[in-house]
């Protein structure tokens, strides 16, 4: 295989990496906000349960969580992901959809929990005076949150969030533990034909991706620097 062929072959895996990355963000950001609301809830059982979930999810290796999500349904004789695999293969010819969905669930929940802690920190760092000012101006709670609190929270959480997002790029490689053909797994397959350099070459894809994200986050930070708190 020449360089171009290898590149195309790796791009196949990289597509899946990007898809997993994007879908995880799309699901985990709003889910994280929801979980952060739960952890801050005045209803004690809700906040308690949410905190325990966050503790477990952040306390167990993501790799293990992928295994758990993928294999546990099988213990109950309900191998949902294998069924999804089959379903998609028979109907669309796509392979490994069930595995992909299992990984997506694990990633989304895991990252939602990390994001929820970032959001919670951001929301709780807004001085109570902001809420009180809104209250005496007759704003509703919804208006207060959307127009006054959230914009300030976003400014504060951009740096920690960008850290998590960059970590996510590289964490996607973990999905190969249940044989999702992401970038590194594709590179590994080539080792069967005695090609080692593609494995190292795959690092370039991550570097470029992370480089673009870094520029993007720098841009956002700059955009939001028009005011100080």
């Amino acid at each position: 295989m020449d360089f171009l062929q290898v590149t195309l072959y790796l791009l196949d895996g990289f597509k899946l990496t990007c898809l997993l990355f994007a879908l995880t963000l799309i699901i985990s950001l709003p889910l994280g906000l929801l979980i952060s609301f739960c952890t801050m809830s005045k209803i004690k059982p809700v906040s308690y349960v949410a905190r325990v979930i966050v503790w477990i999810v952040r306390g167990v290796p993501l790799m293990l969580q992928i295994f758990i999500i993928y294999y546990v349904p099988g213990f109950f004789d309900f191998n949902i992901f294998a069924k999804v695999d089959n379903f998609f293969f028979l109907n669309t010819g796509m392979k490994d959809m069930g595995r992909f969905i299992a990984v997506l669930i694990a990633f989304s929940v895991n990252y939602a929990c990390y994001f929820s802690e970032i959001f919670r920190g951001g929301i709780q760092s807004i001085p109570v005076g902001q809420y009180e000012a809104c209250a005496v101006l007759g704003m509703k709670r919804r208006q207060t949150f959307i127009h006054i609190i959230l914009p300030q929270v976003i400014k504060r959480i951009v740096p920690p969030t960008s850290n998590e997002v960059i970590t996510l790029v590289k964490d996607t490689a973990l999905s190969r533990v249940i044989l999702v053909s992401e970038l590194i797994m594709q590179a590994e397959k080539l080792m069967a034909s005695a090609l080692i350099w593609p494995l190292f070459y795959s690092g370039v894809f991550y570097l470029v991706f992370v480089g673009i994200l870094t520029l993007l986050f720098n841009y956002i930070e700059k955009k939001l620097s028009y005011y100080k708190v």
Binding site: P127, G129, Q130, E132, A133, I148, P151, Q152, K155, Y227, K228, V229
Partner: peptide, 8 residues
């Protein structure tokens, strides 16, 4: 006392 303007 502390103004509490909206900084953004």
């Amino acid at each position: 006392q502390s103004f509490n303007l909206f900084p953004h």
